[in-house]
Design a protein around this nucleic acid. Structure first.
Lengths: 209, 209
DNA sequence: ACAAATCTGTTGCATTTGCAACAGATTTTA
DNA sequence: TAAAATCTGTTGCAAATGCAACAGATTTGT
Protein backbone atom coordinates (compact mmCIF):
# COMPACT_ATOMS: atom_id res chain seq x y z
CA UNK A 1 0.00 0.00 0.00
CA UNK A 2 1.39 3.30 -1.03
CA UNK A 3 -0.41 5.74 1.21
CA UNK A 4 -2.47 5.06 4.26
CA UNK A 5 -5.72 5.26 2.35
CA UNK A 6 -7.99 2.35 3.18
CA UNK A 7 -9.55 0.68 0.20
CA UNK A 8 -12.12 -1.25 2.16
CA UNK A 9 -13.61 1.70 3.88
CA UNK A 10 -13.65 3.93 0.90
CA UNK A 11 -15.83 1.45 -0.91
CA UNK A 12 -18.00 0.42 1.99
CA UNK A 13 -18.70 3.84 3.41
CA UNK A 14 -20.75 4.85 0.43
CA UNK A 15 -24.33 4.11 -0.31
CA UNK A 16 -24.31 3.57 -4.03
CA UNK A 17 -27.39 4.99 -5.62
CA UNK A 18 -26.10 6.03 -8.98
CA UNK A 19 -26.92 4.35 -12.24
CA UNK A 20 -23.38 4.46 -13.53
CA UNK A 21 -22.25 1.95 -10.95
CA UNK A 22 -23.76 -1.49 -10.53
CA UNK A 23 -23.28 -4.21 -8.00
CA UNK A 24 -24.08 -7.83 -8.82
CA UNK A 25 -23.83 -11.07 -6.92
CA UNK A 26 -22.51 -14.33 -8.30
CA UNK A 27 -22.49 -17.92 -7.17
CA UNK A 28 -19.57 -20.30 -7.50
CA UNK A 29 -18.89 -21.19 -11.09
CA UNK A 30 -20.93 -18.40 -12.62
CA UNK A 31 -19.42 -16.24 -15.34
CA UNK A 32 -18.98 -12.69 -14.14
CA UNK A 33 -18.00 -11.12 -17.44
CA UNK A 34 -16.13 -11.76 -20.65
CA UNK A 35 -13.36 -9.72 -22.25
CA UNK A 36 -14.63 -10.04 -25.78
CA UNK A 37 -16.69 -6.93 -26.29
CA UNK A 38 -15.02 -3.60 -26.03
CA UNK A 39 -16.89 -1.60 -23.46
CA UNK A 40 -14.12 -0.32 -21.18
CA UNK A 41 -15.55 -2.06 -18.21
CA UNK A 42 -13.82 -1.94 -14.85
CA UNK A 43 -14.76 -4.17 -11.93
CA UNK A 44 -13.89 -4.28 -8.27
CA UNK A 45 -14.28 -7.36 -6.07
CA UNK A 46 -16.31 -6.34 -3.03
CA UNK A 47 -16.34 -9.83 -1.59
CA UNK A 48 -15.44 -13.32 -2.71
CA UNK A 49 -12.92 -14.40 -5.33
CA UNK A 50 -12.83 -14.59 -9.10
CA UNK A 51 -10.47 -16.10 -11.65
CA UNK A 52 -9.44 -14.68 -14.99
CA UNK A 53 -9.37 -17.63 -17.35
CA UNK A 54 -7.90 -17.96 -20.79
CA UNK A 55 -8.95 -20.52 -23.36
CA UNK A 56 -6.49 -20.60 -26.22
CA UNK A 57 -7.16 -21.83 -29.75
CA UNK A 58 -6.37 -25.42 -28.77
CA UNK A 59 -8.84 -25.29 -25.92
CA UNK A 60 -6.19 -25.24 -23.21
CA UNK A 61 -7.42 -23.57 -20.07
CA UNK A 62 -5.13 -21.41 -18.00
CA UNK A 63 -5.90 -19.30 -14.97
CA UNK A 64 -4.03 -16.12 -15.77
CA UNK A 65 -5.35 -14.00 -12.96
CA UNK A 66 -6.92 -14.29 -9.56
CA UNK A 67 -8.69 -11.43 -7.85
CA UNK A 68 -9.80 -11.16 -4.26
CA UNK A 69 -11.52 -8.55 -2.14
CA UNK A 70 -10.71 -5.00 -3.24
CA UNK A 71 -8.85 -6.06 -6.33
CA UNK A 72 -9.61 -4.31 -9.57
CA UNK A 73 -9.92 -5.99 -12.95
CA UNK A 74 -11.54 -5.52 -16.31
CA UNK A 75 -11.08 -5.57 -20.03
CA UNK A 76 -9.70 -2.02 -20.01
CA UNK A 77 -6.51 -3.55 -18.72
CA UNK A 78 -6.15 -6.04 -21.51
CA UNK A 79 -4.45 -5.48 -24.83
CA UNK A 80 -6.77 -5.60 -27.80
CA UNK A 81 -5.86 -7.95 -30.64
CA UNK A 82 -5.37 -11.05 -28.61
CA UNK A 83 -6.65 -14.33 -29.97
CA UNK A 84 -7.74 -15.74 -26.73
CA UNK A 85 -11.08 -15.74 -25.09
CA UNK A 86 -10.76 -14.31 -21.64
CA UNK A 87 -13.40 -14.49 -19.04
CA UNK A 88 -13.99 -14.10 -15.37
CA UNK A 89 -15.53 -16.88 -13.31
CA UNK A 90 -16.61 -16.66 -9.74
CA UNK A 91 -14.61 -19.07 -7.57
CA UNK A 92 -17.01 -18.71 -4.69
CA UNK A 93 -20.00 -16.55 -3.79
CA UNK A 94 -18.88 -13.07 -4.80
CA UNK A 95 -20.08 -9.51 -4.99
CA UNK A 96 -18.74 -7.44 -7.85
CA UNK A 97 -18.95 -3.72 -8.55
CA UNK A 98 -19.12 -2.68 -12.21
CA UNK A 99 -18.59 0.63 -13.91
CA UNK A 100 -17.38 1.96 -17.20
CA UNK A 101 -14.15 3.86 -17.23
CA UNK A 102 -15.35 6.58 -19.59
CA UNK A 103 -18.60 7.33 -17.84
CA UNK A 104 -16.87 7.60 -14.52
CA UNK A 105 -15.61 10.99 -15.58
CA UNK A 106 -19.04 12.20 -16.63
CA UNK A 107 -21.05 14.01 -14.04
CA UNK A 108 -23.42 11.83 -12.11
CA UNK A 109 -27.08 12.75 -12.20
CA UNK A 110 -27.42 12.14 -8.50
CA UNK A 111 -24.19 13.97 -7.70
CA UNK A 112 -23.30 11.02 -5.53
CA UNK A 113 -20.14 11.19 -3.52
CA UNK A 114 -19.12 7.71 -4.42
CA UNK A 115 -18.29 8.88 -7.86
CA UNK A 116 -15.90 11.49 -6.62
CA UNK A 117 -14.30 9.17 -4.13
CA UNK A 118 -13.89 6.43 -6.66
CA UNK A 119 -12.18 8.80 -9.07
CA UNK A 120 -9.85 10.06 -6.39
CA UNK A 121 -8.88 6.63 -5.26
CA UNK A 122 -8.68 4.95 -8.60
CA UNK A 123 -4.96 5.67 -8.82
CA UNK A 124 -4.33 3.78 -5.62
CA UNK A 125 -6.24 0.79 -6.91
CA UNK A 126 -4.28 0.93 -10.14
CA UNK A 127 -0.98 1.07 -8.32
CA UNK A 128 -1.88 -1.94 -6.24
CA UNK A 129 -2.79 -3.82 -9.37
CA UNK A 130 0.52 -2.87 -10.98
CA UNK A 131 2.38 -4.09 -7.91
CA UNK A 132 0.60 -7.44 -8.11
CA UNK A 133 1.40 -7.79 -11.80
CA UNK A 134 5.04 -6.90 -11.28
CA UNK A 135 5.33 -9.44 -8.52
CA UNK A 136 3.96 -12.10 -10.80
CA UNK A 137 6.34 -11.12 -13.61
CA UNK A 138 9.19 -11.14 -11.11
CA UNK A 139 8.35 -14.78 -10.37
CA UNK A 140 7.49 -15.84 -13.91
CA UNK A 141 10.85 -14.61 -15.16
CA UNK A 142 12.81 -16.66 -12.64
CA UNK A 143 14.74 -19.29 -14.54
CA UNK A 144 13.60 -22.45 -12.76
CA UNK A 145 10.80 -23.81 -10.63
CA UNK A 146 13.18 -23.94 -7.71
CA UNK A 147 13.97 -20.25 -8.00
CA UNK A 148 10.28 -19.42 -8.36
CA UNK A 149 9.46 -21.33 -5.21
CA UNK A 150 12.31 -19.94 -3.15
CA UNK A 151 11.65 -16.34 -4.21
CA UNK A 152 7.98 -16.71 -3.51
CA UNK A 153 8.61 -18.30 -0.12
CA UNK A 154 11.00 -15.54 0.85
CA UNK A 155 8.41 -12.95 -0.02
CA UNK A 156 5.75 -14.72 2.02
CA UNK A 157 8.22 -15.09 4.85
CA UNK A 158 9.12 -11.40 4.87
CA UNK A 159 5.49 -10.38 4.66
CA UNK A 160 4.52 -12.47 7.65
CA UNK A 161 7.85 -11.72 9.36
CA UNK A 162 8.09 -15.40 10.21
CA UNK A 163 10.09 -18.35 8.97
CA UNK A 164 6.81 -20.25 9.00
CA UNK A 165 3.87 -19.17 6.89
CA UNK A 166 0.90 -20.45 4.93
CA UNK A 167 0.66 -20.50 1.16
CA UNK A 168 -2.60 -18.76 0.25
CA UNK A 169 -3.23 -21.10 -2.68
CA UNK A 170 -3.68 -24.78 -3.29
CA UNK A 171 -0.63 -26.33 -4.95
CA UNK A 172 -2.69 -26.75 -8.09
CA UNK A 173 -3.32 -23.01 -8.18
CA UNK A 174 0.27 -22.20 -7.32
CA UNK A 175 1.40 -24.20 -10.32
CA UNK A 176 -1.00 -22.15 -12.42
CA UNK A 177 0.29 -18.91 -10.94
CA UNK A 178 3.84 -19.92 -11.87
CA UNK A 179 2.61 -21.35 -15.14
CA UNK A 180 4.38 -24.66 -14.61
CA UNK A 181 3.27 -28.26 -14.50
CA UNK A 182 1.79 -29.22 -11.17
CA UNK A 183 3.63 -32.53 -10.83
CA UNK A 184 6.92 -30.80 -11.64
CA UNK A 185 6.20 -28.30 -8.92
CA UNK A 186 5.48 -31.08 -6.43
CA UNK A 187 8.69 -32.83 -7.43
CA UNK A 188 10.72 -29.68 -6.88
CA UNK A 189 9.05 -29.13 -3.52
CA UNK A 190 10.03 -32.63 -2.51
CA UNK A 191 13.63 -32.00 -3.55
CA UNK A 192 13.71 -28.81 -1.49
CA UNK A 193 12.49 -30.83 1.48
CA UNK A 194 14.99 -33.66 0.89
CA UNK A 195 17.85 -31.19 0.56
CA UNK A 196 16.88 -29.56 3.81
CA UNK A 197 15.84 -26.14 2.52
CA UNK A 198 12.28 -26.23 3.75
CA UNK A 199 9.80 -28.14 5.86
CA UNK A 200 6.23 -28.65 4.72
CA UNK A 201 3.00 -29.55 6.41
CA UNK A 202 0.03 -29.20 4.10
CA UNK A 203 0.36 -25.67 2.82
CA UNK A 204 2.34 -24.51 5.84
CA UNK A 205 5.96 -23.97 4.87
CA UNK A 206 8.94 -23.44 7.15
CA UNK A 207 12.16 -21.99 5.81
CA UNK A 208 15.24 -23.72 7.23
CA UNK A 209 17.78 -21.18 6.02
CA UNK B 1 -5.10 3.61 -25.56
CA UNK B 2 -8.34 3.80 -23.71
CA UNK B 3 -9.57 7.28 -24.55
CA UNK B 4 -8.36 9.62 -27.23
CA UNK B 5 -6.22 11.58 -24.81
CA UNK B 6 -2.73 12.16 -26.20
CA UNK B 7 0.08 11.43 -23.79
CA UNK B 8 2.76 13.16 -25.77
CA UNK B 9 1.03 16.47 -25.99
CA UNK B 10 -0.14 16.55 -22.47
CA UNK B 11 3.43 16.31 -21.29
CA UNK B 12 5.03 18.53 -23.88
CA UNK B 13 2.52 21.36 -23.81
CA UNK B 14 3.54 22.36 -20.33
CA UNK B 15 6.42 24.46 -19.25
CA UNK B 16 7.49 22.82 -16.07
CA UNK B 17 8.54 25.34 -13.50
CA UNK B 18 7.56 23.64 -10.30
CA UNK B 19 9.96 22.19 -7.80
CA UNK B 20 7.97 19.02 -7.25
CA UNK B 21 8.76 17.82 -10.72
CA UNK B 22 12.28 17.32 -12.07
CA UNK B 23 13.63 16.49 -15.48
CA UNK B 24 17.06 14.95 -15.88
CA UNK B 25 19.08 13.80 -18.85
CA UNK B 26 21.08 10.60 -19.03
CA UNK B 27 23.64 9.16 -21.39
CA UNK B 28 23.81 5.55 -22.50
CA UNK B 29 24.75 3.24 -19.68
CA UNK B 30 24.10 5.70 -16.87
CA UNK B 31 22.02 4.64 -13.90
CA UNK B 32 18.76 6.55 -13.80
CA UNK B 33 17.56 5.37 -10.40
CA UNK B 34 17.53 2.41 -8.05
CA UNK B 35 14.57 0.74 -6.40
CA UNK B 36 16.26 0.28 -3.06
CA UNK B 37 15.14 3.28 -1.09
CA UNK B 38 11.50 3.73 -0.42
CA UNK B 39 10.60 7.18 -1.64
CA UNK B 40 7.52 6.56 -3.77
CA UNK B 41 9.18 7.86 -6.85
CA UNK B 42 7.42 7.82 -10.20
CA UNK B 43 9.19 8.47 -13.48
CA UNK B 44 8.06 9.09 -17.03
CA UNK B 45 10.28 8.61 -20.08
CA UNK B 46 10.16 11.84 -22.11
CA UNK B 47 12.62 10.59 -24.69
CA UNK B 48 15.00 7.69 -25.11
CA UNK B 49 14.79 4.23 -23.60
CA UNK B 50 15.59 2.67 -20.25
CA UNK B 51 15.81 -0.88 -18.93
CA UNK B 52 14.72 -2.19 -15.57
CA UNK B 53 17.39 -4.62 -14.51
CA UNK B 54 17.38 -7.21 -11.79
CA UNK B 55 20.47 -8.66 -10.16
CA UNK B 56 19.56 -11.62 -8.05
CA UNK B 57 21.55 -13.07 -5.15
CA UNK B 58 23.69 -15.15 -7.50
CA UNK B 59 24.57 -12.13 -9.57
CA UNK B 60 22.45 -13.16 -12.55
CA UNK B 61 21.34 -10.18 -14.57
CA UNK B 62 17.88 -10.08 -16.12
CA UNK B 63 16.16 -7.31 -17.96
CA UNK B 64 12.71 -7.41 -16.42
CA UNK B 65 11.33 -4.26 -17.96
CA UNK B 66 11.88 -1.93 -20.86
CA UNK B 67 10.41 1.55 -21.03
CA UNK B 68 10.20 3.87 -23.99
CA UNK B 69 8.83 7.33 -24.63
CA UNK B 70 5.78 8.13 -22.49
CA UNK B 71 6.04 4.98 -20.42
CA UNK B 72 5.74 5.28 -16.69
CA UNK B 73 7.86 3.41 -14.18
CA UNK B 74 9.09 3.66 -10.63
CA UNK B 75 9.58 1.93 -7.35
CA UNK B 76 5.97 2.66 -6.32
CA UNK B 77 5.00 -0.11 -8.68
CA UNK B 78 7.25 -2.70 -7.11
CA UNK B 79 6.39 -4.95 -4.22
CA UNK B 80 8.39 -4.31 -1.11
CA UNK B 81 10.18 -7.28 0.45
CA UNK B 82 11.94 -8.48 -2.62
CA UNK B 83 15.51 -9.67 -2.32
CA UNK B 84 16.66 -8.36 -5.59
CA UNK B 85 18.39 -5.18 -6.45
CA UNK B 86 16.45 -3.41 -9.12
CA UNK B 87 17.72 -0.50 -11.05
CA UNK B 88 17.07 1.51 -14.11
CA UNK B 89 19.77 2.03 -16.72
CA UNK B 90 19.60 4.31 -19.70
CA UNK B 91 19.86 2.31 -22.94
CA UNK B 92 20.51 5.42 -24.98
CA UNK B 93 20.44 9.17 -24.43
CA UNK B 94 17.26 9.72 -22.45
CA UNK B 95 15.24 12.40 -20.75
CA UNK B 96 13.37 11.38 -17.64
CA UNK B 97 10.73 13.19 -15.61
CA UNK B 98 10.72 12.51 -11.87
CA UNK B 99 8.13 13.18 -9.22
CA UNK B 100 6.99 11.73 -5.96
CA UNK B 101 3.58 10.20 -5.84
CA UNK B 102 2.63 11.67 -2.48
CA UNK B 103 3.69 15.22 -3.18
CA UNK B 104 1.81 15.24 -6.45
CA UNK B 105 -1.36 15.65 -4.48
CA UNK B 106 -0.03 18.53 -2.46
CA UNK B 107 -0.71 21.97 -3.77
CA UNK B 108 2.07 23.40 -5.88
CA UNK B 109 3.55 26.68 -4.77
CA UNK B 110 3.56 28.00 -8.30
CA UNK B 111 0.03 26.76 -8.98
CA UNK B 112 1.38 25.29 -12.18
CA UNK B 113 -1.04 23.65 -14.54
CA UNK B 114 1.24 20.75 -15.18
CA UNK B 115 0.46 19.44 -11.76
CA UNK B 116 -3.24 19.38 -12.39
CA UNK B 117 -2.85 17.86 -15.81
CA UNK B 118 -0.51 15.19 -14.58
CA UNK B 119 -2.93 14.21 -11.85
CA UNK B 120 -5.81 14.06 -14.28
CA UNK B 121 -3.95 11.94 -16.75
CA UNK B 122 -2.15 9.68 -14.34
CA UNK B 123 -4.93 7.10 -14.58
CA UNK B 124 -4.43 6.82 -18.31
CA UNK B 125 -0.72 6.27 -17.87
CA UNK B 126 -1.41 3.64 -15.24
CA UNK B 127 -3.88 1.82 -17.47
CA UNK B 128 -1.39 1.73 -20.33
CA UNK B 129 1.21 0.31 -18.00
CA UNK B 130 -1.22 -2.35 -16.80
CA UNK B 131 -2.00 -3.28 -20.39
CA UNK B 132 1.71 -3.72 -21.12
CA UNK B 133 2.20 -5.86 -18.05
CA UNK B 134 -0.80 -8.02 -18.87
CA UNK B 135 0.46 -8.55 -22.37
CA UNK B 136 3.78 -9.71 -21.02
CA UNK B 137 2.11 -12.07 -18.55
CA UNK B 138 -0.07 -13.38 -21.36
CA UNK B 139 3.10 -14.34 -23.22
CA UNK B 140 5.12 -15.51 -20.23
CA UNK B 141 2.37 -17.94 -19.26
CA UNK B 142 2.34 -19.61 -22.68
CA UNK B 143 3.60 -23.13 -22.25
CA UNK B 144 6.37 -23.25 -24.85
CA UNK B 145 8.70 -20.98 -26.78
CA UNK B 146 6.81 -21.84 -29.93
CA UNK B 147 3.53 -20.66 -28.44
CA UNK B 148 5.16 -17.50 -27.13
CA UNK B 149 6.53 -16.68 -30.56
CA UNK B 150 3.34 -17.43 -32.43
CA UNK B 151 1.16 -15.46 -30.02
CA UNK B 152 3.52 -12.54 -30.12
CA UNK B 153 3.71 -12.62 -33.91
CA UNK B 154 -0.05 -12.72 -34.22
CA UNK B 155 -0.33 -9.67 -31.99
CA UNK B 156 2.25 -7.77 -34.02
CA UNK B 157 0.49 -8.85 -37.19
CA UNK B 158 -2.90 -7.67 -36.01
CA UNK B 159 -1.48 -4.39 -34.77
CA UNK B 160 0.14 -3.62 -38.10
CA UNK B 161 -2.78 -5.18 -39.99
CA UNK B 162 -0.25 -6.97 -42.18
CA UNK B 163 1.09 -10.49 -42.51
CA UNK B 164 4.52 -8.91 -42.62
CA UNK B 165 5.89 -6.84 -39.76
CA UNK B 166 9.03 -5.90 -37.89
CA UNK B 167 9.95 -7.11 -34.42
CA UNK B 168 10.73 -4.01 -32.36
CA UNK B 169 13.48 -5.79 -30.42
CA UNK B 170 16.73 -7.56 -31.12
CA UNK B 171 16.42 -11.33 -30.74
CA UNK B 172 18.58 -11.09 -27.66
CA UNK B 173 16.09 -8.71 -26.09
CA UNK B 174 13.13 -10.76 -27.25
CA UNK B 175 14.58 -13.77 -25.46
CA UNK B 176 14.83 -11.62 -22.33
CA UNK B 177 11.27 -10.41 -22.73
CA UNK B 178 10.08 -14.02 -22.92
CA UNK B 179 12.55 -15.01 -20.23
CA UNK B 180 13.96 -17.89 -22.28
CA UNK B 181 17.39 -18.84 -23.50
CA UNK B 182 18.41 -16.96 -26.61
CA UNK B 183 19.78 -19.94 -28.49
CA UNK B 184 16.63 -21.92 -27.72
CA UNK B 185 14.61 -19.08 -29.14
CA UNK B 186 16.73 -19.05 -32.31
CA UNK B 187 16.34 -22.80 -32.62
CA UNK B 188 12.56 -22.59 -32.33
CA UNK B 189 12.49 -19.78 -34.89
CA UNK B 190 14.40 -21.97 -37.28
CA UNK B 191 11.97 -24.82 -36.77
CA UNK B 192 9.05 -22.48 -37.48
CA UNK B 193 10.76 -21.50 -40.70
CA UNK B 194 11.56 -25.11 -41.69
CA UNK B 195 8.00 -26.19 -40.98
CA UNK B 196 6.67 -23.40 -43.17
CA UNK B 197 4.91 -21.32 -40.54
CA UNK B 198 6.90 -18.15 -41.04
CA UNK B 199 9.46 -16.43 -43.22
CA UNK B 200 12.22 -14.35 -41.71
CA UNK B 201 14.58 -11.66 -43.00
CA UNK B 202 16.51 -10.02 -40.20
CA UNK B 203 13.83 -8.94 -37.80
CA UNK B 204 11.13 -8.78 -40.48
CA UNK B 205 8.73 -11.67 -40.08
CA UNK B 206 6.08 -12.89 -42.51
CA UNK B 207 3.28 -15.13 -41.34
CA UNK B 208 2.50 -17.88 -43.83
CA UNK B 209 -0.80 -18.99 -42.26
C1' DA C 1 -23.43 -38.57 6.03
C1' DC C 2 -22.35 -40.16 1.77
C1' DA C 3 -21.15 -39.51 -2.95
C1' DA C 4 -18.82 -36.73 -6.11
C1' DA C 5 -15.40 -33.76 -7.13
C1' DT C 6 -11.08 -31.84 -6.46
C1' DC C 7 -6.48 -31.86 -4.68
C1' DT C 8 -2.08 -34.17 -3.31
C1' DG C 9 1.76 -36.98 -3.99
C1' DT C 10 4.42 -39.95 -6.85
C1' DT C 11 6.73 -42.11 -10.84
C1' DG C 12 8.78 -43.35 -15.62
C1' DC C 13 9.49 -41.56 -19.81
C1' DA C 14 9.47 -38.14 -23.71
C1' DT C 15 10.30 -33.58 -24.92
C1' DT C 16 11.77 -29.10 -24.38
C1' DT C 17 14.85 -25.99 -22.84
C1' DG C 18 19.19 -24.30 -21.07
C1' DC C 19 24.13 -24.10 -21.26
C1' DA C 20 28.58 -23.66 -23.39
C1' DA C 21 31.05 -22.56 -27.06
C1' DC C 22 32.26 -20.55 -31.29
C1' DA C 23 32.42 -18.13 -36.00
C1' DG C 24 30.63 -14.73 -38.77
C1' DA C 25 27.72 -10.48 -39.30
C1' DT C 26 26.45 -6.13 -37.78
C1' DT C 27 26.56 -2.05 -35.05
C1' DT C 28 28.75 1.25 -32.10
C1' DT C 29 32.46 4.08 -30.47
C1' DA C 30 36.79 6.41 -30.39
C1' DT D 1 37.59 4.09 -40.55
C1' DA D 2 39.53 0.74 -37.60
C1' DA D 3 38.81 -1.55 -33.44
C1' DA D 4 35.68 -3.02 -30.02
C1' DA D 5 31.46 -4.52 -28.72
C1' DT D 6 27.25 -6.66 -29.49
C1' DC D 7 24.17 -9.57 -31.97
C1' DT D 8 23.06 -13.66 -34.90
C1' DG D 9 23.06 -18.29 -36.02
C1' DT D 10 24.35 -22.93 -34.99
C1' DT D 11 25.37 -27.32 -32.55
C1' DG D 12 25.96 -31.28 -29.02
C1' DC D 13 24.98 -32.44 -24.70
C1' DA D 14 23.04 -32.08 -19.98
C1' DA D 15 19.38 -30.82 -17.14
C1' DA D 16 14.81 -29.39 -16.25
C1' DT D 17 10.22 -29.71 -17.21
C1' DG D 18 5.98 -31.54 -19.08
C1' DC D 19 2.89 -35.37 -19.72
C1' DA D 20 0.25 -39.33 -18.45
C1' DA D 21 -1.42 -42.07 -15.18
C1' DC D 22 -2.93 -43.51 -10.86
C1' DA D 23 -4.04 -44.11 -5.73
C1' DG D 24 -5.08 -42.02 -1.62
C1' DA D 25 -6.49 -37.76 1.00
C1' DT D 26 -9.37 -33.94 1.47
C1' DT D 27 -13.10 -30.93 0.46
C1' DT D 28 -17.62 -29.87 -1.32
C1' DG D 29 -22.39 -30.52 -2.40
C1' DT D 30 -26.89 -32.64 -1.59
Amino acid sequence: MVTNFDKKNFIKNFKINCKKIQIKKFLKGETVTTYIEKRNQICIVLSGEVDLIRYDVNGNKTIIGHFVENDIFGEVFYPANTNNELFITSVKKSEILFFTYDTLFEKCEFECNFHKELMNNLSELFIDEIIDLNLRIELLTKRSIREKLLSYFEILSKRSMRKIFTIPYTYTDLADYFSVDRSSLMRELKMLIDEGFIKKEGNKITLLF
